[in-house]
Design a protein around this nucleic acid. Structure first.
Lengths: 196, 196
DNA sequence: TAGCTTGTTGAGCACTGCTCAGCAAGCCGG
DNA sequence: CCGGCTTGCTGAGCAGTGCTCAACAAGCTA
């Protein structure tokens, strides 16, 4: 009886891929309000309508889980920043900067949670973050047409820290300058740092 | 019997001030190896030779405890960086920069733990960190003889992030430039940012 | 000696990460 | 239709950790 194919949110039997995706998605949704490392298995399982045990079936460890969530967040950011193929190199960096500011404006809390989680000490999470930064340096140096030496990499990475901090502050208190001024300033600092 | 005044590490009865200081000191010693928030009450109590309960007598909450530890670390940094009274303003910033690099060189792990803990999401810890940054901006702007407006504060704060990141990288891989080149570069970036 | 203050402890509760033995839903070969 | 296999899934329960509470005990003062 009542065998109607109702779209119940109950503990349906799902394929392994679906479940993993669902669990990671829940993690992403919780990210704005909770530091990654403080996601509780209980809460995630409850939202997914499954038992704690099942979560450990898919992620052997809590760390495995929130690392996966972090990686998903990093991938989203990466895909959003990556210049569209065919873009002339000169405007690639400007475009990425523009999209980065837009990203922070739109997903302020999620992005802060991502950065915090990365800085928060856990080596596994930091690694995901560092990996993203490394890839971004690659793209940036290539787009700028600059040689890829150790010094320049250090400077560009430090410039990322500068950018992250300044954009973060500016989104909280945007009265100090216009959005365009911010973009020009960041671009200018980067140029002066890399071409000296 | 055996009433000798031996300096036993046992559970001596101490004054409230002494105990607090001892517990905070233990926290500082653990800081290089452990993110602040992951200090366990058990471990600290064990090292102090006391029961868990006593720690909660002095710090109502674990958060209270590691916030105190963080504040202690921040105070140490602050005292180390603060220009000696009587120093001419022009060399104050250079001196602070020099001492900051020295600090990171000497207490690399502790300082990283401090920064990580601050970035790690906990508002209480972040507040201590932000407070220190704010005081440093005050001193820096005063020493540079520059007006104290919102834009300049944002830029100096972002420059802190730049400096932290670059110095951190440089201490890991110091072959990219000499110590002096690093200092000159940082100072140069700061000047260009604040006097535009 | 009695009594007060206060440094100190052990037992124990609640929550959370994690394990394990086993249930049950779907699919296959007979 | 049945037996067996795979696999998504669960409940009970253990261990560690933050935190509470009632009570002990060391030292001071009256």
């Amino acid at each position: 009886m009542t065998a109607s194919p109702a779209p119940e949110p109950g503990p349906l039997r799902r394929s392994a891929g679906d479940r993993r995706a669902q669990l990671v998605q829940i993690g992403l949704e919780l990210l704005p309000t909770t530091p990654v490392q403080e996601l509780t298995i209980d809460e995630v399982a409850r939202r997914a309508g499954i038992s704690r045990s099942l979560l450990f079936h898919y992620f052997a460890t809590k760390r495995d889980y929130y690392t996966a969530v972090t990686r998903a967040a990093a991938d989203l950011l990466w895909e959003h920043l990556l210049p569209r193929p065919g873009t002339p190199p000169e405007v690639q960096v400007t475009g990425m900067l523009d999209r980065y500011v837009g990203w922070v404006e739109t997903f302020r809390e999620t992005h802060l949670a991502f950065v915090r989680g990365a800085a928060g000490g856990d080596p596994w999470v930091s690694e995901v973050y560092e990996e993203t930064r490394t890839r971004l340096v690659d793209v940036a140096l290539a787009a700028l047409g600059l040689p890829d030496d150790a010094l320049r990499r250090q400077l560009v990475l430090a410039w990322f820290a500068f950018t992250e901090d300044l954009v973060g502050q500016w989104t909280r208190e945007p009265t100090t300058m216009t959005r365009d001024e911010l973009l020009v300033l960041l671009r200018d600092v980067l140029d002066r740092l890399t071409t000296r």
